[in-house]
Design a protein around this nucleic acid. Structure first.
Lengths: 251, 251
DNA sequence: GCGGCGTCTTGATACACGTCAAGACAAGCG
DNA sequence: CGCTTGTCTTGACGTGTATCAAGACGCCGC
């Protein structure tokens, strides 16, 4: 297996032939992924259970809805979307996941994944087998607490999305998503004002409960107002305050 | 403190002068709340940390958004709603909680409650201090697993609501809520076809991302189609199959 | 380079639900 | 009892977003 060429656009990817052997201790994302006061002894234990064998190509699945639940996953580079398929065959995108973020928690409840996860671009993944994680959590109270917190935050974020879908206009929804991506970029020490969207307009619309056309129109409107510069998937936030205003206050 | 009079409409309430001293071992809801293979020894340990001191009157708060997070709570009788207040002062109902169900998980993430919880009618509550729960979880792998599962299910349910809000019509949303309440009633060995809604039309609309007027019109429509009999908060499901059809397939 | 095929944009039209308004009903209280 | 207040219902109308349709753009293989 050779190292895929042209990782230039993936700032989180560590260009090293044996990159899948990085440990949590030296991973530059650990401040996001594991902001814990763990002894290096503890980190070693964690390292031992984590598997880093899965570089995922664009549009490949990490797991599928109804698959048996075995692990949760941390994104090391790239980006993923999670989505569920309803009884009548339609899809609902439930989240986008960027480097340092963890997905798969929705599978614990019934021992089967409640959603599917698909790579939006070439992505490197850390797999964390849940049974090992449970054992380790019993021994390391910090770790147990950390995973309770991660799940709790997922709940909080879902509730924010619920509010967004329930109460906000198309403009507000798109603005909120742009701000969310901007914030998450900043957390990874990337530009908060310039980035490339890994997902399509269809995915954005699906996630926000809007049609592609509406999303497109909102982007055009924002561009006309000089809040954003939009060049296909390339986004530049020209007026952060205006964007925040558009997301929150405008009724 | 005297026992409140007139609990006749609250089927889950155990009419006993010292009812706040029931233990998990003999609580008739434990199959829902704690479906665990726990030794009676373990149950005793759990009993010891749980506090049952809080009978809540209608419209009283169990906790408020931004309150310090200390406990999660199990509903013993009555019903509650959880809601968050957005920056611009509007409210979003994020869930309804019935006997046997546990709420408060959204507070773990940042050590502060991310939502408020308010009693929709007189309710009895079991308080489970989270720090004790964490310690106990480390000792009892089953218990740890159980709470991971509960949180995971909360995530799954939130995602179902996201899908509902994002993809479904007013008819479908209301139908889905009625089915959800029906199912949860059945789980508690109550009628799946006849029940009294503890929440107002405003709450329903808020939860489902609809106005009161729309909710009311949907109920009228359902009544005209002989799917439901609606008498203010009293609901009778006349045509369960029709209701299911209305919730799922109709487009 | 050129053709083909997604993805994205833009415009015209339709409709589901929101908004506004008024009346009906229920509950609490002097 | 009648008054008040809040909740619920029903109707008429307006609007934001979906839908339908067509064209523009970008990407890839040949």
């Amino acid at each position: 297996m050779s190292v895929p060429p042209g990782q230039a656009d993936s700032a989180d990817f560590i260009p090293c032939a044996h990159d899948y052997q990085v440990s949590c201790g030296n991973c530059r994302l650990n401040a996001i992924c594991l902001p814990l006061a763990l002894e290096s002894e503890d980190i070693d234990q964690l390292d031992r259970i984590i598997q880093r064998s899965k570089p995922l190509q664009k549009s490949q699945h990490l797991y599928r809805q109804a698959d048996e639940f075995e692990s949760v996953y941390a994104v090391r580079s790239g980006a993923l979307k999670a989505y569920r398929t309803t009884d009548d065959g339609r899809e609902q995108v439930t989240g986008f996941y960027f480097p340092g973020e963890i997905l798969g928690f929705d599978g614990i409840g019934n021992n089967a994944h409640a959603s599917s996860a698909k790579a939006l671009e070439t992505s490197a993944i850390c797999e964390i087998p849940f049974s090992s994680l449970q054992k380790l959590s019993s021994l390391m109270p910090n770790l147990q607490r950390h995973f309770f917190q991660l799940m709790s935050r997922e709940i909080t974020e879902d509730q924010q999305l619920i509010t967004l879908l329930s109460k906000n206009s198309a403009d507000e929804r798109v603005a909120a998503l742009m701000l969310s991506i901007s914030t998450r970029n900043a957390r990874r020490k990337l530009s908060a004002t310039q980035f490339r969207l890994p997902m399509s307009r269809v995915d954005i619309g699906n996630y926000l409960g809007l049609t592609v056309e509406t999303v497109s129109r909102v982007f055009s409107r924002m561009q006309k107002l000089s809040i954003l510069r939009v060049d296909n998937k390339e986004i530049e936030i020209l007026d952060p305050a205006g964007l925040r205003h558009m997301a929150n206050l405008s009724h």
